[in-house]
Nucleic acid binder design. Structure first.
Length: 271
DNA sequence: CCGACGCCCTGGGAGC
DNA sequence: TGCTCCCAGGGCGTCG
């Protein structure tokens, strides 16, 4: 599932691959995923040039030469692939942007939870983005992090994944960071000591940077913009490892459900 | 403010 | 081999 490191990897790929290209057309076979409508998007961006690609939280923003912006959320199974026009159809491709230079930007999404959304201008974008908490690798300081933790008694894993409090962290990196910091995912955030908060802050930064370094984690669906898998799954310490040996203490990794999400931890190490 | 739950959706695994 | 059933889960909405 694309989280901050996966979305950032795709953003960097797209910055290299599609900036400067002209939009020749757009098609879809899944109209509900194109907002407000295919016709509106087609009218707004056909003939424009892609100026830049940015990311905030798990949202990719594509800026066009006429000031219009498209934001993309990949949710669980979304992919943004840059292909040659003649390349074979991708699995689950639903939105196809025809680009100059014989290229195509394809949005593929098995689950169909993801979306493309046209925005009028920068102002509309800022209105959406201001609802998100700080970026863990850019703006989230230790004091701010400690304040976020102390502000709620919800389980600390839920807090890490709460996009309004901290942006970009999803299930994989939350699990991995809590393991590194040796903190039980169920622990009420405000009951954490300063020391535990600092360890978690450092662990979170560490796993997110590693995720970017390894070009993301590919469980079943994630691919970068060229269709390649990432490598971070080869470095998972707890995620998806239920029943296996803990890599730190030789206990057994357990899987529980927390906030309706699969949660993996070592009951011996994480207190 | 909070937690619980349903919904969107479909591939893939389990069970028979 | 093939059928049916059910679950995963990010974000959002609703309800109590």
């Amino acid at each position: 599932m694309p989280e901050l490191p996966e979305v950032e990897t795709i953003r960097r790929d797209l910055a290299k691959l599609i900036v400067g290209r002209k939009v020749l057309g757009i098609e879809t076979n899944s109209p509900k995923q194109v907002q407000p409508s295919l016709e509106m998007v087609k009218k707004a961006i056909t003939g424009t040039t892609i100026k830049k690609v940015q990311r905030r939280a798990k949202i990719i923003q594509i800026f066009f030469s006429n000031g219009k912006i498209i934001i993309v959320h990949l949710k669980l199974t979304g992919r943004l692939l840059v292909r040659k026009k003649e390349d074979k159809i991708d699995d689950w491709q639903h939105i196809m942007l025809s680009l100059s230079g014989d290229k195509e930007l394809r949005f593929a999404d098995s689950r169909k939870f993801g979306w493309f959304r046209l925005l009028k201008d920068e102002k509309e974008l800022q209105k959406i983005l201001k609802e998100f908490g700080p970026e863990p690798l850019d703006g989230l300081t230790l004091p701010v992090f400690q304040k976020i933790l102390s502000s709620t008694s919800r389980p600390v894993k839920i807090v890490l994944m709460d996009q309004q409090r901290i942006s970009g962290v999803g299930n994989i990196y939350a699990n991995e960071a809590l393991f590194l910091a040796k903190i039980d995912p169920r622990r009420p955030a405000k009951k954490m000591t300063k020391q535990a908060g600092e360890k978690l802050y450092q662990a979170l930064e560490k796993v997110l940077r590693a995720g970017i370094k390894y070009r993301g984690a590919s469980d079943q669906y994630y691919l970068d913009a060229l269709g390649h898998k990432g490598f971070y799954q080869e470095h998972f310490l707890v995620y998806g490892r239920q029943g296996k040996r803990c890599l730190a203490c030789s206990g057994t990794i357990k899987r529980i459900s927390l906030g309706g999400r699969g949660t993996f931890y070592c009951p011996q190490c994480q207190k």
